[in-house]
Design a protein around this nucleic acid. Structure first.
Length: 669
RNA sequence: UGGCCUAUGGUGUAACUGGCUAACACAUCGGUUUUUGGUACCGAAGAGUCUAGGUUCGAAACCUAGUAGGCCAACCA
């Protein structure tokens, strides 16, 4: 067995450590706890991937728990959608559970805490309480109700539960510390009165527990070993532990394991927003057609767009897990879907911007059904027949009357291969009065063994079927649309994120079923949209192929600000170039050092003493930088710079260094 | 006038517990192959690990002090 040393992420390190410290492997248990108040998006996929991934790695159960403690926001519709999405991604949960299942247990514990003087009923308005809470930099003050007797608290809390009080009149709070630097510890609310119908418990309850009181205790009841959540819950950990420690005292016989909360950085994708609230706005304001619009970063949107479960899981795996803020480039997601579809999607031919080619030496009524390979990456994919005839469409941008020899496609007098068919030569162009090309007249050659540089996709005019083709661009023009405090993210919407056109497809596609995926050769991956019917086919472009040709030609305009100059490379001052040399200098072979030195001497003309001076303090270990500074300094001295104390000191220090090159340069003054 | 967290190439993640030339992937740029300017393969470039001190024979890792960014004041989760 070859031991593959796979780097562990910090969560796995902690788990390994816990196992090493005696936690039995069978005790490992995880959970994914969504609130059923919206659709899952690619950001959630990270959390899903981490918890379920850990489950798979350690062969441990993972619960799906709906955190449904706020009936005002939650609905069964979302429960169903969430289950569907997770199952689609291919993860299996051990138990489907609900926080609302624990309402009674939570209530019983709360009563125990009241009896122990660890919780009390407060009866103030939210405004007054907010004031007493203080600010992050200012301590809070105690509520006047903080010292109610246990009996009174018990009676009031029971009254709350019994529905004796209107909403907003009383609350149950934990009695912790109003002066704690962590705001969450300043007597947090455990229960509020809410007369709302709950999607599962109906009208059984009129008091509902808050997140902090519910979440950790649900973990505890389920005996979750490691409770993973995103970084913004870090400050909650202290409270999580406080509740947990108290409850543990009441129930350690039945529930011996105390869960541990660990936090990781959430996923951010460039050119994308990830907040449920903001995504909702896109839906409500009609920017997109719904939660499953193929441009949406929701799981349902990605699914409709043609992303596969495999590709998304791969993506999450590649993204990794850590604690620092991150922005992942969408190109990584695109890489993952291409990699997957390349292996699985059958190749077909489709022309989306047609221009007609007439093959003048091909008989008018002749047609041939030529054999085409479905997928050269998959031996089992087999072959199909595609019809060839005298008139075909090719892509408009695949023809130029004149072009340089870097243009491998069709040009007048030039030859090109038609994929799966013959080699043609363009002889003549027919145009209309406006100069637009009507048709290209070609002759074909049956000898296909010839070597030609380019191969084009095509479709027979007579046999082509049409379909609606929907092409997508990113929804936003900005890399981080919701990170501009003053500006609303809606200002960055890309007005051209959807393009609809008619495509001409090879006839085999007439049978295509909703959800089926293809590679339109040389164009990209496409799938059959939900809107598609046998009468009217509709395709979505999932992602384009990598295209190293289009990168070479200057794009007339694009709204993807790819041309944004790299700010660091833009202002490369002489001094920064010199510093760059410094980083490498000691590693250079001698020859290269001489070259670098000469260049630095030239660059030094554009360097002032003020540029150089701060570098005199460079750390001793960075010999390269000091050498390079020294070389530049010598040039300045040569050009009349006066020696001062700082300079002398720098040189003297260099002479005593252990680096020989540095010493040599320094002695040479 | 606070508490907590974070800082490694353009991006993300590694470097086991202080020890080889700071690794892998994406992106970028070359090249080979190719009936997809795709795929595959080969290669290049790009980081002295935020700064300054310190500990050590040896620091990305440990210590101190800065700096920068993030999170924390909903009867939301």
């Amino acid at each position: 067995m070859s031991e593959e040393i796979k780097a562990l992420n910090f969560i796995e390190h902690i788990i390994e450590e816990d196992l090493a410290n005696g936690l039995p492997k069978e005790k490992l248990r995880f959970r994914f706890p969504p609130e059923p108040n919206g659709y899952l998006h690619i950001g959630h996929t990270k959390a899903i991937g981490i918890s379920f991934g850990l489950g798979e790695k350690y062969n441990a159960p993972v619960n799906l728990r709906f955190d449904d403690t706020n009936p005002a926001k939650e609905e069964q519709e979302y429960v169903d959608a969430i289950k569907k999405d997770i199952a689609w991604l291919g993860y299996k949960w051990e138990n489907e559970l609900y926080s609302s299942d624990y309402f009674q247990k939570l209530y019983d514990w709360a009563v125990l805490m009241i009896k122990d003087g660890k919780a009390y009923v407060d009866s103030q308005s939210s405004e007054v309480m907010a004031e007493q809470k203080g600010t992050p930099t200012q301590v809070g003050t105690n509520s006047p109700y903080r010292d109610r007797s246990v009996e009174e608290n018990l009676e009031l809390f029971e009254g709350m539960k019994a529905g004796k009080f209107p909403a907003g009149t009383h609350l149950l709070r934990a009695k912790i510390d109003m002066e704690d630097p962590n705001m969450l510890m300043r007597d947090p609310i455990m229960y509020r009165i809410m007369y709302a119908h709950h999607h599962r418990t109906g009208d059984d309850w009129c008091i509902y527990p808050m997140y902090d009181w519910t979440h950790g205790e649900s973990d505890y009841l389920e005996q979750i070993s490691h409770s993973l959540c995103s970084l913004e819950f870090k400050p909650h950990r202290k409270l999580y532990d406080w509740f947990k420690d108290n409850v543990y005292e009441y129930s350690k016989e039945n529930y011996p394991l105390a869960p541990k909360q660990l936090e990781f950085a959430r996923l951010n994708l460039s050119y994308t927003i990830m907040s449920k609230r903001k995504l909702l706005r896109l839906v409500e304001e009609g920017v997109v057609s719904g939660w499953d619009d193929p441009r949406m970063p929701t799981i349902s949107g990605l699914r409709r767009r043609g992303y596969t479960p495999n590709s998304i899981r791969k993506f999450i795996e590649k993204v990794g897990v850590a604690k620092r803020e991150n922005v992942i480039d969408v190109s990584l997601l695109e890489f993952c879907i291409r990699e997957d579809l390349n292996k699985t999607a059958n190749r077909v031919m489709a022309v989306l911007d047609p221009v007609k080619v007439v093959i003048t030496n091909y008989p008018k009524d002749k047609e041939e059904w030529l054999e085409a390979e479905n997928n050269q990456e998959d031996d089992s994919a087999g072959f199909r027949k595609v019809p060839f005839s005298r008139e075909i469409y090719i892509e408009r941008e695949d023809f130029k009357e004149e072009a340089g020899n870097k243009f491998f496609r069709l040009k007048l007098g030039g030859e090109v291969r038609l994929k799966n068919a013959y080699i043609i030569k363009a002889n003549e162009v027919r145009k209309d009065q406006n100069g637009d090309i009507l048709e290209i007249q070609c002759t074909y050659d049956e000898d296909t063994s010839k070597k030609v540089k380019g191969t084009l996709h095509w479709v027979s005019v007579k046999h082509a079927i049409t379909a609606e083709i929907r092409e997508y661009d990113r929804l936003f023009n900005d890399e981080a649309p919701d990170s501009h405090g003053e500006k609303d993210f809606m200002e960055f919407i890309n007005p051209n994120s959807l393009t609809v056109k008619t495509g001409y497809l090879e006839p085999s596609l007439a049978e295509a079923k909703v959800g089926e995926q293809f590679q339109f050769q040389r164009l990209g991956y496409f799938n059959v949209d939900d809107d598609s019917t046998p009468e009217k086919l509709v395709f979505n472009k999932t992602v384009g192929l990598r295209d190293s040709w289009s990168k070479q030609k200057p794009k007339p305009q694009n709204n993807q600000n790819q041309n944004k100059p790299n700010p660091q490379q833009q202002k490369r001052s002489a001094i920064s170039v010199i510093q760059q040399f410094g980083k490498k200098y000691t590693k250079f072979p001698e020859e290269k050092q001489l070259k670098a030195k000469a260049e630095i001497q030239v660059l030094a003309k554009d360097v002032s003493y003020d540029d150089l001076e701060p570098l005199f303090g460079t750390a001793v270990k960075k010999a390269g930088t000091r050498i390079v500074v020294l070389i530049a300094l010598k040039e300045l001295l040569k050009n009349g710079l006066e020696k001062n104390e700082a300079i002398t000191e720098f040189i003297e220090k260099a002479k005593e260094d252990k680096n020989d090159i540095l010493v040599a340069e320094a002695s040479d003054i």
